[in-house]
């Protein structure tokens, strides 16, 4: 929705110039639960533009029919048995809570936004 891709030229390989706008960064910031100053928005849009334009070289590669790799090594069917092993240091988990109340993690009010 905020992303723009412009084709600069195309020979037998498609090369695009990727433009990352400040609006794009703002949208990504919302998805990422981050907020930025205007200057950061400028910097990040510039950085990401450079990086994605560098990565455009991937378009040179013919990947038709190539199976994507989600893992470094092939492995399958790794399971645990359905057995309860109680964890005995729950208090050490709770001790890390920034704010605890009634043995629960307390968070500020949730605004319906």
């Amino acid at each position: 929705m905020y992303f723009h891709i412009y084709a600069i030229h195309s020979s037998y390989v498609k090369i695009f110039f990727v433009m990352i706008t400040k609006e794009t960064i703002k949208h990504l910031a919302v998805l990422s639960r981050l907020e930025f100053t205007e200057k950061q928005l400028d910097n990040f849009s510039h950085d990401l533009e450079n990086i994605f334009n560098y990565a455009q070289m991937l378009n040179e590669v013919d990947t038709t029919g190539i199976i994507p790799s989600s893992h470094a090594m092939p492995l399958q069917n790794v399971f645990k048995e359905d057995r309860v092993i109680p964890y005995h240091n729950i208090e050490k988990i709770m001790a890390n809570a920034p704010l605890e109340e009634s043995h629960a993690f307390r968070v500020p009010k949730i605004l319906a936004d």
Partner: peptide, 12 residues
């Protein structure tokens, strides 16, 4: 209800 709450507690 959620809209009137002052804060919430997370139970996992």
């Amino acid at each position: 209800n959620i809209s009137g709450a002052t804060h919430s507690l997370v139970d996992l």
